[in-house]
């Protein structure tokens, strides 16, 4: 207990409060900076606007737009389709034995391997 009382708690708590506050201040500052240059440099969203004829009824135009939006794929759906296609085409590929050893030649004699007609034979 005496040991605890002997500790300079003011100094300790100052380090803790100031330290924690500085961590938050620095990182909050970074949040704003990153947010700011995110707004400047973020890639612009490509919005495909559908052109509808002027004479179309507003309700019909709204319906048309909603239908168009519903047909658009989200990134997750695109990824799932891509993965499915990849797996499908992976399966299509032939499964080979992967053994590429030269088959044994059944016919052992051939003029090409003949010792009689070899170039090294001495002329008698």
């Amino acid at each position: 207990m005496n040991n605890l009382l002997a500790i300079d708690w003011n100094n300790t708590l100052t380090v803790v409060y100031f330290g924690l506050a500085m961590v938050f201040i620095t990182l909050i500052f970074l949040v704003f900076i990153i947010g700011l240059f995110g707004k400047i440099f973020a890639p612009a969203k490509v919005l495909i606007k559908i052109k509808l004829p002027r004479w179309i009824h507003p309700a019909a135009a709204k319906h048309e737009k909603e239908e168009y939006e519903s047909k658009r794929l989200t990134a997750e759906e695109s990824a799932a389709i891509g993965m499915a296609l990849h797996l499908y085409y992976d399966d299509v590929h032939d499964v080979e034995s992967a053994i590429i050893t030269i088959k044994k030649v059944e016919r052992r004699y051939s003029p090409w391997s003949s010792k009689i007609y070899g170039l090294n034979n001495l002329i008698r």
């Binding site: 803790v16 330290g19 961590v23 995110g38």
Partner: peptide, 29 residues
């Protein structure tokens, strides 16, 4: 992190352990 800068706050909060333990270690002498 760039896409969601708010994550930095969570990174800051997780440093709580450092400073809380600082107090505990001082108390232990």
């Amino acid at each position: 992190l760039i896409a969601n800068p708010k994550s930095l706050l969570l990174g800051a909060a997780a440093q709580l352990g450092i400073f809380a333990t600082y107090i505990g270690a001082i108390a232990l002498g």
